[in-house]
C-alpha cells in the first residue's frame, strides 16, 4: 500500500496535528509559543561527549551551513599534567567526521568540548552591529537579520568565541540560531536531537519545569571565557580550566 500524507492524516490524527504545528511557519501562528515566556540557553555535559561529530553534521544538514564554516563544532583537548596552560587542541573539519583514535596518555588527559554560539545576554557582537542587523530576540536568542546585514564583519571581530563568520555566498554574517525555527515549534535543536549521549541539552531558563534548574543546583557549571562578562547562556558541566 502506498501511504501518502493524506492517509497518515486519517490514520493518525494526533501525529498529524503535532506535525502540522511543526510545519506552521511563524512563532505567532504557533499557537503555544509566546516569546516573552522563554529565555533560551544550552547545557553541555563535557563528561558525556564522545566526539562523534553528530551535532556538527546535524547542524550542517538542518541549517545549510557552508563548507569550511561552522555554527557548531567540536574540539578535542589534550592536556599534559605539567602543561595545564598549554593544551594541544584539534578540530579537524570542525570534528564533523569525528576524531582519530588515540592511545592512553599516562601523563595527560583527553576530552571533547562542543562549541556553539553562547547566546550571550550581554553579547559583544550585537553591541557593535552598526545597523541593528543582529540582535537578541525577546526570548534570548542572538539572531542575524540576513536581509538587513551589511556584511561589515564587525560582529565577527567582536565575538570572543569565534562563533560567527561571513557566509561565502550570501555575504552576510551567519551564526548559530539555536535552531530558532525549531525551538519556537516545540522541537529541540538539530544538534541536541542528533546527540546520542545527551551531552547537549537545550534549556529554557524561564521554564521552572526545565531540568536545567535541577542540574544547575547540583553541579559545578561554568561558561566559556567568564572574564569576558558576556552573560553567556551555554553552560558547561565539567569544564576544564585549560579550555578557552
Amino acid at each position: 500500500m502506498n501511504i501518502t500524507r493524506r492517509h497518515l492524516l486519517i490514520l493518525l490524527p494526533a501525529a498529524a496535528v503535532a506535525w502540522e504545528s511543526v510545519l506552521a511557519g511563524t512563532p505567532e501562528s504557533s499557537p503555544n509559543y509566546t516569546m516573552t515566556e522563554h529565555w533560551w540557553g544550552m547545557l553541555i555535559d563535557i563528561p558525556k561527549c564522545i566526539g562523534c561529530g553528530n551535532c556538527v553534521r546535524a547542524c550542517q544538514a538542518e541549517n545549510d551551513v557552508p563548507d569550511g564554516f561552522f555554527r557548531t563544532w567540536v574540539e578535542r583537548y589534550h592536556v599534559n599534567d605539567w602543561q595545564l596552560a598549554n593544551p594541544q587542541v584539534i578540530s579537524p573539519d570542525g570534528g564533523k567526521e569525528g576524531f582519530p583514535s588515540v592511545a592512553e596518555d599516562p601523563e595527560g588527559k583527553y576530552f571533547f568540548v562542543p562549541k556553539l554560539c553562547n547566546h550571550c545576554a550581554d553579547s559583544p557582537c550585537t553591541q557593535v552591529c552598526p545597523v541593528g542587523a543582529t540582535f537578541i530576540s525577546p526570548d534570548g536568542v542572538v539572531l542575524v537579520d540576513q536581509k538587513y546585514c551589511l556584511g561589515c564583519a564587525y560582529c565577527v571581530q567582536a565575538c570572543p568565541y569565534g562563533c560567527r563568520y561571513i557566509h561565502p555566498t550570501k555575504k552576510v554574517a551567519d551564526k548559530c540560531t539555536l535552531c530558532y525555527h525549531r525551538i519556537t515549534k516545540g522541537l529541540t535543536t538539530a544538534c541536541c536531537e542528533a546527540c546520542p549521549t545527551g551531552a547537549r541539552q537545550l534549556a529554557d531558563l524561564k521554564n521552572p519545569a526545565d531540568p536545567i534548574h535541577a542540574f544547575l543546583k547540583t553541579h559545578s557549571v561554568q561558561v566559556l571565557k567568564p572574564q569576558m562578562a558576556t552573560g553567556a547562556k551555554v553552560f558547561y558541566n565539567g569544564l576544564d580550566g585549560s579550555v578557552r
Partner: peptide
C-alpha cells in the same frame, strides 16, 4: 528593539529537516 521585528518571524519560518 533596535532591529527589524519581522526578521524574527522570517527566521522562525525556516524549513525543518530533523522531524524530531
Amino acid at each position: 528593539g533596535h532591529y527589524r521585528g519581522a526578521a524574527i518571524a522570517e527566521i522562525a519560518a525556516h524549513p525543518v529537516h530533523f522531524a524530531g
